[in-house]
């Protein structure tokens, strides 16, 4: 189907009757150039993510979308988000077999067999945007910080590249970008969420296994997600105030 100028102008007309938030988001998209989000008030939001383990099919769409949206190096050592495959022999939650070939970027070629008494599932991982981030705590200069809307961000132009934060993250979410020599990590697509869009990984997730949520917005579906599911965060013993909430997280996941 081809969109000609007439149709496009008609579409622009529709743009006027969209909801305010949606039209603002689309406005940024149509603007075409990288822009700040001047109308965005960080103090009115508190971002989190909800992940439903039972919905993840391990397609790797989120990994690919993340690398594209955020220009993450394609080598298999650099991931802002990745997907792990868990294989838990019956009852043995202490010794799961885990793999994440190329972070799940190319999907997961079959390696287990049906009916061996095991439990199998995928676990998408990303920065947990901890409210008490160990990585933020150790940064010597304030090059990584918790934003007023609850996102752990990096100031690439201020980072020393000392890598202390990489050591301090219990979840392995940080890496040094070999091109900038600064640290890099999931920004929760800060350039998107501040413009009313969802993150790239949530945008492309075909089953809705991962959903961005705003805990300060009482109408956000994440409240129902947290209320109606058995929810856990990764490594709760680390007391990091993680804000990526998993439904149906198995005890073997670490």
């Amino acid at each position: 189907m081809t969109v000609n100028r007439r149709q496009f102008v008609l579409a622009s007309g529709k743009y006027l009757v969209m909801s305010a938030a949606a039209s603002r988001a689309v406005g940024y998209v149509l603007a075409g150039s990288p822009e700040r989000a001047p109308g965005y008030s960080a103090h009115d939001h508190w971002w989190a993510m909800a992940i439903d383990i039972d919905l993840c099919i391990g397609c790797g769409g989120c990994v690919r979308a993340c690398k594209e949206e955020n220009d993450v190096p394609l080598e298999p050592f650099f991931f802002r988000t990745w997907v792990e495959r868990y294989h838990v022999p019956e009852g043995d939650i202490e010794h799961p077999m885990v793999d994440s070939p190329n972070g799940g970027y190319d999907g997961f070629p079959e390696r287990y067999r049906e009916g061996d008494g095991s439990k199998n599932f995928f676990v998408p991982k990303l920065c947990n945007h901890c409210a008490h981030s160990p990585c933020v705590q150790v940064c010597p200069v304030g090059a990584t910080f918790e934003s007023p809307d609850g996102v752990v961000l990096v100031d690439k132009d201020y980072c020393l590249g000392c890598r202390y934060c990489v050591q301090a993250c219990p979840y392995g979410c940080r890496f040094i970008d070999p091109r900038t020599h600064s640290v890099d990590k999931c920004s929760l697509c800060y350039h998107r969420i501040t413009k009313g869009l969802t993150t790239a990984c949530c945008e492309v997730c075909p089953t809705g296994a991962r959903t961005l949520g705003d805990l300060k917005d009482p109408s956000d579906p994440i409240h129902e997600f947290l209320r109606t599911n058995m929810v856990q965060v990764l490594k709760p013993q680390m007391a990091t105030g993680a804000k990526v909430y998993y439904a149906d997280l198995d005890g073997s996941v670490r």
């Binding site: 010597p140 090059a143 000392c162």
Partner: peptide, 20 residues
């Protein structure tokens, strides 16, 4: 350091709760 030229920032804006 990835950015040796920025190490002086440790003296400018040291974060008091960072061990480093």
């Amino acid at each position: 350091l990835g950015h040796p030229e920025r190490s002086f920032q440790m003296y400018l804006t040291p974060k008091t709760d960072s061990a480093m």
